[in-house]
Design a protein around this nucleic acid. Structure first.
Lengths: 214, 214, 214, 214
DNA sequence: GATGAATGAGTGTTCATTCAT
DNA sequence: GATGAATGAACACTCATTCAT
């Protein structure tokens, strides 16, 4: 009787897709604003203009399912934002810079999506304490980096560092800078605009990854 | 009837200190294992071998107080581990390397402490959604970095990067590498030992921060 | 997911109104019987035939909200009982008598409502120790008296007493007589029926308020 | 081993009496300030400068016992304050006036004692919901009034009212005026000083009780 | 399809009281 | 005499989920 199980490939009616999208959007907003722990069905339903939480349970198999749907939607939106800029760049180093800069820039146009994604990646666990979306999203991001870095090394555009370490350092650094900026903590010094932050970060990793004589 | 408020300066009896320490240790373990959101008083009490959650409330003014006590204990332990190595290093660059390497190494000897600290920093908020331990710990970490980097720049050991961005990139990168290693996700390639990860990460930031010709 | 906040103007379904009324009735009974302090959600739920206290929280925003709803319901019932008799009386003195007598009589038909109201007025405070329903009910009662007395003085039906003192004396006297009668304490002497008590009290205040030569 | 059972006639050592008195004083203050429901052993112990609530349980058989001791102490103090003024008055009517006026005046010199007494009378119940101090204190007050009024009637100083009703009206009126004044609610008009309130109230009951032609 | 009332386990916290020391 | 750690029940309240309608 129930649709549920977002992993399934059942086709969805328009209204169901509409409701699902509406709920996912509301959930993303609430998670971004209140954090994962405080993002209850009740608050999400209120934000979505729904009269009861039952509606959410009706459309999603459970909280895990909803969270996964949110993560997928966020990744879709972020990718859509970053893809063109990365594609436009020529060469591994340039693509890496495009990735970093666009990832940082995104905090300006989609701050909620980014905050929500970080919340989900850091906190979402199922009843057994297992991470919910990690393998589907974050690993792929790091692995994607790793692949890119390895390819760039082979092409001679990068130096001889450990790609696994560098890939994770990269994701962590981006998230931290973005997070610190999003929470308004800008420290002393000249007002920090996003573009400059992105450029600085890209500069740092350019130096870290550039070929060098060992 | 307890002075509670960890900030207080009331002297504590031996038994009370013992119980507090016991509870803090249990809380750190539970937070590390189950994540902050699932670390309830009930679970912490069970882990500590306590008969009721009331006992925790008896020794701590509230969850916030317990969490702060955990953070302080973790920082104390981590500092104790890292301090000698950092002090032994001579020069800004060497000290930075010592910090990074010892911070990564620590995941081997105190994995729970590190995981718990990250959980707390990322998730612990009070009823109003305000971060609980940030200013006392994480900001000071980034600010400490920023100060170190700025001093190093003046001494000519570092290049002309933005210290705010670099400091946050540094903390984020360390936490990400450490976190990825702690969760057992080691990707492909040769088995990654911690020391090598620390060295690689230190290498990367050495290149990123080294003086260069603009 | 309920609009809650009894002040809200959301329309309610039939079932919801029913449940709310049912809970309010149970709460009034429990407060009257056990006193405000002992009127916990658990006891109210049991009295209302509900399976859990969560149900009460579902229909009311909190204990304060429930208590306010109780006070409103009680005032509604009491007003319904007294209004016709007061309206039927002609002149300030006669209306005062009608108020006092009907207020005392009501203890016969709605003893729980009266006891509960007194309990609420005397004890209901929020977390900060602020009175919950005072301004809405009890003050208005004393103020209403004061206005009535002042108008009666201007019309020459009452003497030259201080209206503030008299108004509070009036409310206090009514509540005390009603309370003493409700708790079954009737002292010695002939069995005291309610009507006679009301008449005696009205007589006393008639003498106290009647015009006199200073 | 334990002293306890305040009703008992065991002689007490000096320190024990001292501790008891100290606890009773603290309890009276806390009840007056926070209300009966919020006056927990923990708060009373803190106010008394005690390190644990165990101390209270050691000296009193339970909360009921402590509350009874408080009521007795309050009545003792109030009586001490009022007795001389009442004794000095000659005649039933004059004594009644002295009682009312001194009772109102007392709010100026012992506001906490009065508030605490009202809190106890209105709220203190044992586990079965039975009033704790009523028979010992409040009834005696009303009964004392009733006796006084009856004697005055026989002496021809009072009219032919029902003494039970008048006695309770009197206690209720005094408590209400005193309570309203103590909570700062003074309404409009000229600043209301206590003496004037007492005089007004005494005037009102003088008129209500004075002999009249039926 | 959709609703919203209902559930029961769970949250942190406070409570009066006990008891070994 | 006195202490303070410990207890366990109770508190109001939130949670994700279910189910008759």
């Amino acid at each position: 009787m129930r649709a549920k199980a977002s992993g399934g490939q059942r086709e969805r009616t328009f209204t169901e897709s509409g409701r699902r999208a509406q709920i996912v959007d509301a959930a993303i907003e609430v998670i971004a604003e209140l954090g994962y722990a405080r993002a209850s069905f009740a608050r999400i339903a209120k934000r979505a203009g729904l009269s009861s939480t039952g509606m959410i349970s009706y459309h999603f198999a459970g909280k895990d399912d909803l969270v996964r749907a949110c993560a997928e939607e966020i990744v879709r939106v972020l990718t859509e934002f970053m893809r063109p800029r990365i594609d436009a760049a020529a060469g591994y180093a340039a693509k890496l810079r495009a990735y970093i800069e666009s990832n940082v820039d995104i905090v300006g146009s989609r701050p909620a999506h980014l905050r929500a994604l970080l919340e989900i990646l850091n906190n979402a666990r199922d009843a057994d304490g297992q991470v919910i979306v990690d393998s589907a999203v974050v690993t792929s991001r790091a692995e994607l980096f790793a692949t890119h870095l390895r390819d760039g090394q082979r092409a001679g555009e990068f130096g001889a560092f450990d790609v696994w370490v560098m890939a994770h350092a990269l994701t962590g650094a981006i998230d931290a800078v973005v997070g610190a900026h999003a929470t308004g903590e800008e420290g002393e010094g000249p007002a920090r605009d996003l573009e400059r932050c992105g450029r600085e970060l890209a500069d740092a990793f350019e130096r870290a990854t550039a070929p060098w004589r060992r």
